[in-house]
Design a protein around this nucleic acid. Structure first.
Length: 203
DNA sequence: TCACTGATCGTCT
DNA sequence: GACGATCAGTGAG
């Protein structure tokens, strides 16, 4: 693993495409950075899913509530929620304020602080540290306290610009849904070992 | 590698 | 009173 700490550059909100699908694609190759008292950990995003306005599979579909309000804030706001009573999932609010939509960060390749992430997920092989949304959140110590954080701000969780561009992006249906299960709104880096999901979705 | 199952609890019906 | 944007463990092929 390289140690590009000095080269990480915070993304400005104006750099985030103001469209959910465009953002989901844009985030492939971008970096999630987590600063904590234990140190810094970062993963390169290799898999995302888009949850659009008017999308019956999206948490925002039935309107704003106490739980999903972060999805309705400015793009670049973190939306964190608890799933199956055990795991957290990290999303990025994707549209203008008042419109509910987001991008789920599904998987990442560890690029910094792997030892820290391993300490947070002791039984996990390196490849599985952040392979899947629940694992990624655990590896980065993301929980409800980070819900609503500005990922383009100076906080403990932020987005950094890609270190190198030019990945080939594949598309598939989203994972784990019952509603709107046919829509091709999942994006992943072709050829990456750090992508989750069954093999047939990762060609 | 895939399919199946239990764990677990906040949110919304 | 269900039902999840999931995961780890198990067993079969």
């Amino acid at each position: 693993m390289s140690a590009p700490a000095r080269r990480l550059r915070r993304l400005r909100r104006s750099e985030l495409p103001p469209d959910t699908v465009a953002l989901a694609r844009y985030l492939i190759g971008s970096i999630v950075v987590r600063d904590s008292p234990e140190g810094r950990a970062a993963v390169r995003i290799v898999e995302t899913e888009a949850y659009l306005p008017g999308d019956a599979a999206a948490h925002s579909f039935r309107g704003e509530t106490a739980r999903n309000r972060s999805l309705f804030r400015a793009r670049g706001t973190a939306y964190v929620y608890l799933i199956y009573g055990t795991w957290y999932c990290l999303n990025v609010a994707a549209e203008t304020r008042g419109v509910g939509a987001g991008v789920l960060i599904r998987a990442g390749e560890p690029i910094l602080g792997a030892a820290l992430m391993r300490a947070r997920r002791p039984k996990s092989p390196e490849r599985d540290l952040a392979r899947g949304p629940g694992r990624l959140a655990a590896a980065l110590a993301v929980d409800l306290r980070l819900d609503g954080v500005d990922l383009c701000g100076p906080g403990p969780l932020w987005l950094a610009a890609p270190l190198q561009a030019g990945q080939t992006i594949g598309t598939s249906v989203r994972i784990g849904l019952t509603r709107e299960a046919h829509r091709a709104l999942r994006f992943y880096e072709r050829g990456s070992d750090f992508v989750s999901g069954p093999r047939r979705l990762n060609s």
